[in-house]
């Protein structure tokens, strides 16, 4: 196993204190930052995701691991800019206009963060214009939309249209989800991906980015 065995185990367990201490120790020992991130943290979160989808662990355990990772990230992110370390991709996410459901969206957001994506969250009731404007501003790789109501689903194609009008549609991948949303609907409105839950959202996002 990797040189980050102890770190890895702490993240798996969601033991924040030990994980942070292990990260610090690795840094003090001069380990490569990218290695700590890739092998110590993200690979472990992949394992966490895998255990979750196999039903070995439950959501709170998974989220605790994600939180543990976040705490470790706090130590290493300041060094990123200098060393030019990359994240898996930038994601802009929000619940569409007229819709106030946010628990599912937040779960997707946390899982993606755990998997190494950088997230910007626009919250709920996000207008197409707002999505477009923020896309222009931060240039995300993926725009992710959540809708829990069949009455707010049409906000999704409207948002895609707004992205088009803003000239940024082709610069991003669009991913959608939420209880009434289906794969078929995603195809109809020409979104790039649909996922039925937070776990598969991560898998889909990775494949959109061309990473396995």
């Amino acid at each position: 196993m990797s040189e980050f065995q102890a770190l890895s185990e702490a993240v798996l367990k969601g033991d924040i204190k030990t994980a942070v201490a292990e990260t610090q120790a690795a840094m003090d020992a001069g380990a490569n930052i990218q290695d700590i991130l890739d092998t110590g943290l993200i690979a472990t979160m992949d394992e966490v995701g895998d255990r979750f989808s196999k039903g070995i662990i439950f959501v709170p355990q998974m989220l605790r691991s994600a939180k543990t990772m976040q705490e470790c990230m706090k130590l290493i992110t300041p060094l990123f800019q200098k060393g030019g370390v990359t994240s898996k991709g930038k994601v802009l996410i929000g619940t569409v206009k007229g819709d106030l459901h946010d628990i599912g969206k937040n779960l997707v957001l946390m899982m993606m963060e755990g998997a190494g994506f950088t997230i910007t969250d626009l919250g709920v009731d996000v207008t197409p214009e707002k999505f477009a404007q923020k896309t222009q501003e931060i240039e995300p790789d993926i725009v992710a939309m959540s809708a829990l109501l069949s009455t707010t689903m049409p906000s999704m194609p409207l948002t895609i249209e707004a992205l088009q009008n803003a000239g940024v549609r082709d610069k991003v991948k669009i991913m959608i989800g939420g209880a009434p949303v289906t794969d078929k609907y995603a195809q109809e409105i020409k979104a790039d991906a649909y996922a039925s839950d937070a776990g598969s959202a991560v898998t889909k996002a990775k494949s959109l980015m061309g990473i396995s």
Binding site: G55, F58, V59, P60, I103, G104, D197, A198
Partner: peptide, 14 residues
């Protein structure tokens, strides 16, 4: 008419 909806979030399927 009084009362909230207090169900539970399933921790496997969400």
């Amino acid at each position: 008419l009084f009362g909230p909806n207090v169900s539970t979030l399933d921790m496997k399927s969400t």
